[in-house]
Structure formats: C-alpha cells, structure tokens
Amino acid sequence: MAWTWFHRLASPPHVYALATRLTPWFAWPAAALIVAGLYAGLVLAPPDYQQGDGFRIIYVHAPSAWMSLMVYVTMASAAAVGLIWRMKVAHAVAASCAPIGASFTVAALVTGSLWGRPMWGTYWEWDPRLTSELILLFLYLGYMALRSAIDEVQRADRASALLAVVGVVNVPIIHYSVLWWNSLHQAPSVMKLAKPEMPAAMLLPLLMMLAGFTLYFGALLLVRLRGEILRRERSASWIREALTE
C-alpha cells in the first residue's frame, strides 16, 4: 500500500497532469524570490570590506554554481532510478535536466571568471575547483551529445543514464576541491550554519536567490518533463486528451 505513490509516479499520464498543475506553484514563488533577492543583493546589502561592490557577483555566481551541481545530482539520481526500475518517467526527468544544468554550468564558469579577474588577477587558472567545474560542463555536453547520437529513445535513455551515473563521482570532487587542495577559490561561506561568515544583510539575499533558483529549476523541469513524456509515449490514448487541453 505504501508503494502506491511510487507506482503513480511511474505512470506517464498521471505525472503529465501533475506537472501541468504544479508548474505555476514553482514558477511564481521563484520569480518573486529572484526579483526580491536581486534587489536585496544589489541595493540593500552593504559592500564587502575587502571586495567592495565586486562581491555582489556572488548573488548570481553561487546560485548558478548551486544549480550546476543540484541539477546534476537530480539527473544522476533519476537516471539511476530509470536504470534500476526501468522507469520511463525517471529517464524523462534525467533527459530534461541536462540542458538546464549545462547552461548554468556555463553561467557559473563565466561569472566566476569575471569575479576572479579583479580579485585574483586572472580570468582562469587550472585550479582544482575551476577544473572540476569545467569537467562537469563536459559531462553535461557528453550526455547531450550521446543522447542526440542515438535515434531510438529507449536506447538513448539507457546509454546516457549510465554516463550520468558514472559522472556523479565528479560532484563531491567539485564540492570538496577547495578543502582537499590548495585552491584559489574561497572555502564555502554558506554551508556553515554553526558559524556563519556573512552578516545577515549579505546572507539573506543569497539565500533568497538560492531558494528562487531551486524553485525555478523545479518549474523548468516540470515543463520539459511533459515534452519528454510525450516523446516516450508512442500511441497511448491519453495523449489525445492531453493535447486537446
């Protein structure tokens, strides 16, 4: 009995309808949080005592970097579920994640580079954090290239899922790179709630942006997921109803 929710999540028509219904519940709070976070980060937060107004890049850089990792973990988890339980919907989730994750990995790399130039004196360094994040971008691109190279959706799902699952080893490497190696990149400043290193006026806008981007990812995923479900359902009769909406 406890497994009914799991079985329902495996049912394409159910998930398609659920995704349609849920999208606005993610999209609107996301928009509100991002707009408020931008205002708080650009206007209300005080300049940093060392980095001046340059530190404000954190409000777009950290959410982009967070997206690049969170989306990958979502993609790899969904891919693993798809491989283990042969669940079409899980593969559809994984396939929806890749373009979103890849684009925000680019945002994280470029905004990081624009932050590095004034603070470290260089746009790019073959530093552990930067290099492992670049590898993440290649994992996303490899995943998408592999999918588009295979015509049959079911085969593309299985092959790309394997790549996504194997590539997940890169995620802890990115996260801990600044602690394991001597990195130019600063150590995490948010994930230490015991001893926060930022005053509330700086931290709150960041938390708003992180929450806003996370909900925004939820909305994007739900929209893409519907498309990916349709691509996997060849002749199901429920599609006729779904399309007349």
Partner: peptide, 28 residues
Amino acid sequence: FVWPSYALTLAIVVLNIIWARRSLARAR
C-alpha cells in the same frame, strides 16, 4: 565585472524559459 555577470546569468534564466517552452511545444 558585476554587470556582465548579472546580464549573462539573467539571459540564461530567460533563455531556459524559452527553450523549455519550445521543447514542450515541439513535443506536442
């Protein structure tokens, strides 16, 4: 450094909305 960072990130935010909707429209 600050404005190009914001411009690029917001452009990617907006583009992702367009891409996602286009992907669904194509599938439909």
